[in-house]
Design a protein around this nucleic acid. Structure first.
Lengths: 146, 146
DNA sequence: GGTTGATGTAACTGTTGTTGTTACGATTCG
DNA sequence: CGAATCGTAACAACAACAGTTACATCAACC
């Protein structure tokens, strides 16, 4: 299994959408969670859980019943890594104090808003960088380096 | 007694160093982990563990024995949030696949380096943003808003 | 040289998040 | 109706984190 500390949900979600995009480009109607799971090397339920979040964000759609599966809601070139990040990541990168600091102390009283402002700037920069890459770019680079 | 997903280690470490800086500016020699823990509202061992990492990074020093405690290795204005981040955060923000993807598949074979390059750009942007704020800035803003 | 007060660190607990897995109901095409 | 797939709950295994207790170690000071 695993053992790292960072989140791989953005990676798996981007991989799944990119796979669907290539599959559709090759003329197929829908992609199943099992096909995607084979490419990602994980369990189909993991894929379905992630794609459910992406559907909620308006990036993917699903059909049920026989001949069911997943489709993209938009072209790969209209989906940025920021879109995927926002759909899939629960919270901000940095958190403030686990327990409220001492309000009798100047630092304890005042540092949370100051650090929070700095963290806001970091999140803004991170989002701007993620917005620079579309899944169309990702697929193009994958095919170029193949 | 918590409940969030993100890391608060950067917050606690920055708080501790800022507290030491103000305490020294007021004429005291050393700060104890118990004093700092009171301001942060946590256990002294948590502070000692974090300060040990900061000492390893050359940001703080400690004395043992009677009259022991912690001092800054540099002025607050010479310590950026990036310095603290690097001292205290273990890994990158985003991880690649938990298990190696399918090498029979074009996407599975090629997407990891492409996403990795995008993640490198994100880390670079994140670091640049953290480097823009020093703990001197933090203390100045805390005192200004007091 | 012993007392004292703080660091250094190991060990353990409770909680949370993540990934993977099984199971099964719901849905829809043919 | 039957088959295939989604939708989702439930659970296990694992790691990370915060907090806590405990105790050895060290150095200043009387």
């Amino acid at each position: 299994m695993d053992g790292m500390g960072a989140n791989s949900r953005l990676t798996v979600a981007a991989h799944a959408l990119t796979w669907i995009g290539l599959y559709q480009r090759r003329g197929h109607e829908v992609a199943t969670s099992e096909q995607i799971a084979t490419s990602v090397n994980t369990n189909p339920v993991v894929i379905r859980r992630l794609l459910a979040q992406l559907r909620k964000a308006g990036l993917a759609d699903s059909r049920r019943g026989a001949g069911a599966g997943w489709t993209l809601s938009r072209d790969l070139s209209a989906i940025t890594l920021l879109d995927v990040y926002e759909a899939v990541e629960p919270g901000p990168v940095f958190a403030l104090h686990p327990a409220p600091p001492d309000r009798e102390c100047i630092v304890g009283r005042g540092i949370a808003p100051v650090l929070g402002a700095a963290y806001d700037g970091v999140e803004t920069a991170l989002r701007a960088e993620l917005a620079r890459t579309t899944l169309g770019d990702v697929l193009r680079d994958v095919l170029r380096d193949a």
